[in-house]
Every structure is written in C-alpha cells, then in structure tokens.
C-alpha cells in the first residue's frame, strides 16, 4: 500500500476506527459473529475428539471422566493465561485472539492423527499415564480455547466498563455458537460425513475466524499509523 493510498484509507476509515476504539457496542457487534463461530468449532472438536479418544482408550466411565476433566482443566489453565495476557498487552488483545484461533485451527487440522497416535502409544499404559498423555495432548488447544474469553472480555470491558455486561454478551454468543456446533455435528453431519471431516471443517472455521480478525487488526494498525503521521 502506498503512502497516498494509506492516507486516503485513513481519512475514509478514520472515523470508523475512532468509533471502534471507543465504542464498545460496535466492537461487540463485530466480535460477536467471530466468537459465535469459534464456539461452534469448539463443540465440534469436543464431540469428535471424544469419539476418537473413546475409540482409542475405551468408552468406560474411567475414560469418559479422564477425557472430560482434562478438557475442562485445560480450559481453566488457558483462562488464567488469557487474563494475564489481556492485562499485560491490552492493545494486542485482538491479535492474541486471532493467533489463538489460528493455533486451535492448526492443531485441529492435525488432531485426528495425533489422537490415534497417542491412543496406539498409551492404550496399554496405566490409567494415570493415560490421563497425563491426554492432558498433554489436549493442553495446547484447550488452553487456547480457554484464553480467548478473558482476553475478549477484558478488551470489551475496557470500553463498556461493565464486566457482567461484556462477559454476558460474549459468553452468550460463544455458547449459542457451541449449541449450533452440536446441532450440526450431533444430528445431520454423521448422516453424510465422517469424524475426521468434521474436525477439519472446524479447523477451517477457526482459521477463517483468525484470518478475518487478522485483517481487522492489520487495518487498525495501518490506520493508526497513518493517523499518527
């Protein structure tokens, strides 16, 4: 982009950016669909990963408990990391969200083979080793999933000044997205397609969310740079 075109762009979008930087409602409106899709992808992973893990480690209550607990605990750790990031680099919140989605998507793409590999390696191991193997396997994606909510809540709260309002809004869209994800993968999807295809579809959704957010972040940076000149 030339300096002239950036300047033109800055003039035309300056107002938009200025509003976006301060207007929580506009920010929320833009974030909502992205976080909705992110929630849908998360539930698709959860359902499909559970199927693959049950096939690998058994479908008894021991495996179910290990897998669900490990998934939740990873989300919790991610939440702590996300909160710290949100405070240390508040101006990079959207970039972190985009990178988290990219990380989830990339892991998701390769996850079916990783899960099968882990299953083959650990199926004969004692339960505690299986729990650790599952924890390490799911640590990266679940941490990234868990980190996104506090990062975005902090970002929106800085504009709205109301934690309950921002977390209520973001949690609501993310959970509606999750419900949509389960509606798709739990009912029609397996009538036509296979498990790995569902996982890869979720990965594509995460990567799309990431790309859209990255475009958004890049645009903001270009505009703010142009404005500062």
């Amino acid at each position: 982009m030339t300096t002239a075109s950036v300047a033109t762009e800055a003039r035309s979008a300056n107002t938009d950016f200025a509003i976006l930087a301060n207007d929580g409602d506009l920010l929320a409106r833009r974030l909502a669909p992205l976080f909705f899709v992110s929630g849908a992808a998360a539930l698709i992973y959860q359902v499909c990963w559970q199927r693959l893990l049950f096939a690998a480690f058994g479908v008894d209550i021991d495996s179910v408990t290990i897998i669900v607990s490990v998934f939740m605990f990873g989300l919790g750790l991610g939440a702590l990391v996300g909160g710290t990031i949100a405070d240390r680099r508040p101006q990079l919140a959207l970039l972190f969200f985009a990178l988290s989605e990219l990380g989830i998507g990339l892991f998701g793409w390769f996850s079916p083979d990783l899960i099968r590999m882990t299953g083959a390696l650990f199926v004969a191991a004692p339960q505690w080793q299986i729990a650790i193997a599952n924890f390490l396997l799911l640590l990266l994606p679940t941490c990234l999933m868990g980190a996104t909510l506090p990062i975005l809540v902090a970002h929106v709260t800085r504009r709205w000044g109301n934690v309950g309002k921002s977390i209520g809004m973001l949690y609501q869209v993310n959970t509606f997205g999750a419900a949509m994800g389960i509606a798709v993968v739990g009912f029609p999807w397996f009538l036509f397609f296979e498990i790995d295809t569902a996982i890869r579809m979720a990965a594509v959704l995460n990567i799309l969310v990431s790309i859209i957010t990255l475009f958004w972040v890049k645009r903001q940076w270009q505009i703010s740079r142009a404005c500062s000149r």
């Binding site: 939740m72 605990f73 989300l75 919790g76 939440a79 702590l80 990391v81 996300g82 909160g83 710290t84 990031i85 949100a86 405070d87 508040p90 868990g146 909510l149 506090p150 990062i151 809540v153 902090a154 709260t157 800085r158 934690v163 977390i167």
Partner: peptide, 14 residues
C-alpha cells in the same frame, strides 16, 4: 481487568 475476570472464570472451570 483481565486477571480479575480470568480468576472468576478459572474457578468456574475448576
């Protein structure tokens, strides 16, 4: 803000 939100969220997930 971030840490205070994530603390409450962390307890919910625990």
């Amino acid at each position: 803000i971030g840490r205070s939100v994530s603390r409450v969220y962390f307890f919910n997930i625990i």
